[in-house]
Design a binder for these strands. Sequence first.
DNA 1: AAGGTGACTGGCC
DNA 2: AGGCCAGCCACCT
Length: 104
Amino acid sequence: MDAAKEEYVERVLTCVESVPAGRVTTYGAIAAVVGGGPRQVGSVMSHHGGPVPWWRVVRADGSPPPCHDGEAAAHYREEGTALTGAGRIHMREAFWDPAAPDED
DNA sequence: AAGGTGACTGGCC
DNA sequence: AGGCCAGCCACCT
C-alpha cells in the first residue's frame, strides 16, 4: 500500500502548515526535514498542496512558486510577509527553517 | 528495466 | 539581474 507515500505527503503538508504567517520556507528546507529530494516536495505540493498555504513555500532564491504567483503576492501583502523592493520575498527576514522553529 | 520529467538548487556566464 | 548547465531524488510511462 502507499501508506508511506501518504505519510510523506502529510509530513510535507504539516511542515507547510507549521510555517507562521508572514514567514516562508524553501522546498529544499522541507526536503531536508521530511527527506527525499526538493523535486519530490514540489511534486507533492502540486498534487496535494491545495488545502495548505502553499504560498509560504518559495524557491531558494526567494521567488514565489511557479504557479499562482499573483495570488501568492496578495497573500504575502495580506500576511505582512517581508518583501523586497522587486516584489520578491526577503529571505533574510521572511525565511523560516522548519528544522529550527525556535529561531523564530 | 530503462528513459524522461519535474511547484528544486547552486554555480557559471 | 537574468539565462544556461549540471547534479539531485522520486515518480510516471
